[in-house]
Amino acid sequence: MIAQEIVQVITLVLILVGAALAVSFKDLLASILALAGASLLVSLEFYILQAPDVAIAEAAIGAALTTAIYVIALRRTRRKEKE
């Protein structure tokens, strides 16, 4: 039980780190990948909280499809954020 809580805390801290990295990166491709990583960790957190249905949907839509759409959008715009 205590081990599960430790895993949960680590996952939540890593989600926060991923979200902060997604905001702070100047290279937008790296930012998209940080967002996908945070999304995958959210999916892991759903799985730990015993909601595998939501975990599958989050992993498929949040981590894969959103990333694909962002990469497609990035091809038509600048890769670097202007300061």
């Binding site: 949907a57 499809l65 694909a68 497609i72």
Partner: peptide, 21 residues
């Protein structure tokens, strides 16, 4: 098993989306 039409469809669509990307 966990999942269903929406989740499975999203997984298949993400597999297909890999192709054009």
């Amino acid at each position: 098993t966990p999942g269903g039409g929406f989740q499975g469809g999203a997984v298949v669509a993400s597999g297909f989306a890999l192709l054009p990307v």
